[in-house]
Simulated scan of single mutants.
Amino acid sequence: MGLEAVVGDIKEKGKREVAAVQAETRAEVTRILTEAQERAAGIKQQASEEVERDVQRIINQEVSAANLSVKREMLNAEKDTLGRVHDTVVTRIAGMPATFHEMALRALLPEAAAAVGGGVVYCNARDIPTVKKILAESKELAAFSIGEPISVEGGVVIESADGRMKIDYSYRTFLETVWESGLKDASDILFP
């Protein structure tokens, strides 16, 4: 075999080895690229899922905050409405005819006399003539005197003779008692 044949064999063998290395390199490059693409797709999917979870969490928080805000506004509106109803009731009771106030005072004063015995009766300026008349007519109320007018819609405040006890029989006090006990019922009726 001549030198040319040996050189040809070596070249041929080198070409085959180069082709094999190139094929092996291409296969390795393809495998690496495929793995990289799979990892990138996995990372992209994971990031997409995290973004979706974050978006859903933010939406849930915003919806909860909006619901809370709406509920707070509703409660404030209900409270405002109930406050206006309360004020209207107080105003209407204060505006009742004189016969109503006299009838109420005739019921309240003997009750106060039973609880206190004697002392000073305080009422609004409108009711002073009526209270004076009731005190003058009743022997059981003889131990009471009338004090300076106070700012109440109606009813009386009684102070014992020694000043240690006060009984509030004003309309507002009665209304507050009824209001507190019936507030839930009133709210249920007004805001079903």
Rank of each mutant, 00 (worst) to 15 (best):
A41Q: 08
Q37A: 13
S145P: 05
T91A: 12
A19F: 07
I58K: 00
F144L: 06
I59F: 13
V29S: 00
G8C: 13
L141S: 12
V157C: 03
A27V: 05
M96I: 03
I93Q: 09
V51T: 06
Y122I: 01
E49Q: 10
V121G: 06
N67W: 10
A40G: 02
V70Q: 09
E137P: 08
R26M: 14
D188I: 12
Y122Q: 05
D80W: 00
F191V: 09
A98W: 08
A19R: 05
T99M: 07
R53K: 09
E49G: 00
R26S: 13
V70K: 05
F144N: 03
V90M: 12
E24F: 06
I158D: 03
V89D: 06
P192G: 12
A36K: 00
E102F: 10
H86L: 12
V85T: 01
G155P: 01
E17L: 06
Y171K: 05
I43N: 05
I134K: 11
G119D: 11
G42N: 09
D162P: 03
A65Q: 04
A104M: 08
V18A: 15
V178E: 11
K79W: 04
L183Y: 14
E176Q: 11
G42W: 03
I59C: 10
M103G: 00
I32Y: 01
I59S: 12
N76F: 00
R53E: 07
K139V: 12
K11F: 06
A41L: 07
T173K: 15
D54I: 15
V63I: 10
R39T: 02
R57G: 08
Q56L: 13
L68K: 08
V120F: 07
V29M: 04
A19D: 12
L135R: 06
T173Y: 14
A125R: 15
D185H: 15
G155T: 01
E38I: 06
K11S: 11
D9W: 14
A40L: 05
D185K: 15
E17I: 02
E137I: 11
G147V: 03
T88H: 09
E176F: 11
A36T: 00
I189N: 12
D162K: 00
E73A: 12
R57T: 10
G147D: 10
S138G: 09
C123L: 03
S181Q: 15
S160G: 07
S181N: 11
N60G: 14
R164F: 07
R57A: 15
A142K: 15
R53I: 04
S138R: 14
L108E: 08
P149C: 00
G118A: 05
D162F: 00
R72W: 05
S151R: 06
V51E: 08
R72D: 12
T34V: 01
A112L: 02
A65F: 03
Y122G: 05
